[in-house]
Computed example of a mutant assay.
Amino acid sequence: MARRSGGYPLLQFFTWATMGCFNPYVAIILTDRGLDNTRIGLVLTLNAVVSILAQPAWGLVSDKIRSVRKVFIFCLAVAGLLILLLPWARSLSQLVVLYPLILFFLSPLAPLLDVWTYQGVSNHPHSSYGQLRLFGSLGFAVFVIPLGRLVSMWGLNVTSYGFALLAVVSMVISLDLAPVRANEQTVMRPRLLPQLRLLLGQYRYVSFLVILFLAFLAIQPMFGFHARLMLSVGGTQEQFVWTMALAALSEIPVFLWSKKLLARFRPVRLLVFSLFVFILRLTAYALVREAWQVTAIGLTHGVSFALFLIALVHYIDELAPEGLKSSALTIDSAGYVGLSGMAGNALAVCLMDRLEIQPVYGIGALVVLAALALFLLSLLPGRQKKHRQADP
């Protein structure tokens, strides 16, 4: 599995600690640079466009060379170097170039890490993806709070230096992790183009891509404008940091019990439940009046996003052919993170200019409700086929 049994937990811990120096601060840094909602939406949209291209591209490279580790280390190293340029990027013209460039190398890291961890423990009955992924949530929560205090004392540039430092630690851990052994992959190198056609020809996979795109039209702006929501109801930057930390900690019980949840309920049912919780979460955000309420609602992050993530990784693994696991997950991620983020952020900005921020969350709840209904309908052909096969 790894040269040291502690490799995967450590990699999850420090990779997500690294991410915690960047992801929560994108909108905050853009606001600090003096950008309004429209210009922030432009940068977020460009980030999403780049993610759409980068995630499947790096996934295909990973499958082609049969090494997630090499691609992961390369992307993390380049992203770390580029982020060190952020303190000197002040104007819109600089930010619309630098942020998408960072995202080209940063956005594939999460799905690649998911694939690497899942494949690395797939043949080890005492380990599971979810039980290792919880260390990522812990790393994010442990580092985001002291980082927030450092930002309060020394400014936002601390986030760039923290990212670069933690990225080095993550790369050192990556180098000490053995690649997935040959007997854990297909023995023969697959021909990628026929396999990709097979994947994209699957009704279940393609319909799932479409449904996730629709759902995350609302969910991605919920994440992207979370800090703005906190500030709009009188919260502070420090309260937002604590909200992010507590949300990350709420993921840990879900990841800890993921193996039992999957065995009892299967990925499809968990996906349905997580989307239902997202509907409730968006509705609640539309009704908040005080900052503590935003924090409290964030505690549902575990039973919404964490539950969605573990179900997604297992569901995609069931659908993807051997030799195309990385591509399947990164293509999916490009859809619900990149494409949905691009379209969702653009729509959210337009609506916010007319309706303010909270009514947009209410509209988002209706969008996710529609996506959930479509997902349930998309499962009917498979169930009807099983019933026909069961008939004598």
Rank of each mutant, 00 (worst) to 15 (best):
V43K: 02
A248Q: 11
I173H: 09
Q358Y: 07
T236D: 05
H314R: 06
F140W: 09
P179K: 00
A227E: 04
L275W: 13
N183P: 03
A334N: 02
Q12F: 08
A390R: 09
A296K: 02
Y161V: 15
K386L: 14
M1F: 10
L212R: 00
F240M: 10
A77C: 06
G362P: 09
Q55L: 03
L196R: 13
T15H: 14
H387A: 09
H226L: 08
L60F: 13
V50R: 01
G201Q: 01
E322V: 15
F216E: 00
R191L: 08
E184Y: 09
T243W: 00
D63Q: 01
V172Q: 01
I145V: 15
S107K: 04
A79N: 06
S137V: 10
W16H: 13
S160D: 07
G344N: 11
F216S: 03
A348N: 00
G235M: 04
L166W: 13
L134A: 07
D32C: 01
I219N: 06
C21K: 09
S127Q: 12
L60E: 08
E290D: 05
P392H: 08
L374I: 10
N47H: 09
A178D: 13
S378K: 10
L42G: 04
Y336R: 05
L85E: 06
F223S: 00
L312Q: 08
M230R: 03
Q131K: 09
L369T: 15
P267W: 04
D353Q: 14
A178F: 00
G155A: 08
S122C: 04
V187S: 13
H387I: 12
K386H: 06
I29T: 11
P321E: 01
L92Q: 02
F22A: 13
R4I: 12
S51K: 00
S333R: 01
H301G: 02
T31N: 05
T159P: 09
L165H: 03
A245Y: 05
R281D: 02
F135W: 15
T15E: 02
A218T: 13
